[in-house]
Amino acid sequence: MEKITTHTGIGVPLRQSNVDTDQIIPAVYLKRITRTGFEDALFAEWRKDENFILNREPYTRASVLVAGPDFGTGSSREHAVWALKDFGFKAVLSSRFADIFRGNSGKQGLVAAQLAQDDIELIWKVLDNEPGAEVTVDLQARTAVCGSVTAPFQIDDYTRWRLLEGLDDIGLTLRHKEDITAFEEKRPAYKPTTLPALLQG
């Protein structure tokens, strides 16, 4: 997982509350066997409308989603975070996230920054007045900056640390590689291995 300390990119205002994971990525896309390439699936239903904001320039290049409250509710599918990341998003700003979505984001390197709704509204205003304006998400300082607006955001210490260090779940565990190796050395000799394959006569 990539380390993130600060990110600056085009902000896109998504003036919607309760964006659930079924909207973020509809269930039909869950049949795929890949883990990347979900950019076409992001907001697939909404994007059928050519006026939907993500279909318009310069937002096709946006990387900071500034959404309404209660973002990411509904099914726990990790695909929702994959789709956002594959599209190019590095951060989502909202005044309230669904817990599971927030958890999945932190594990997979997407910043879910919680701002006050008033600050979200201020950023929306800047983005409306200056389409294509950039938002800077500073994880060190825990602030989001857009035009003249500088707003603090909340993110829990543990998730922030993981993002700053670029540690996914596996990366975290692999920090204890020596412990794992030490454990392996003590395993009883009779424990089975699948290789070489032993078969019945």
Partner: peptide, 18 residues
Amino acid sequence: PQAFEGLRLAGRPLRRPD
């Protein structure tokens, strides 16, 4: 499939094929 792909994307080996 996605687990295998995750390993591939991160350039990680499968620790214990055995």
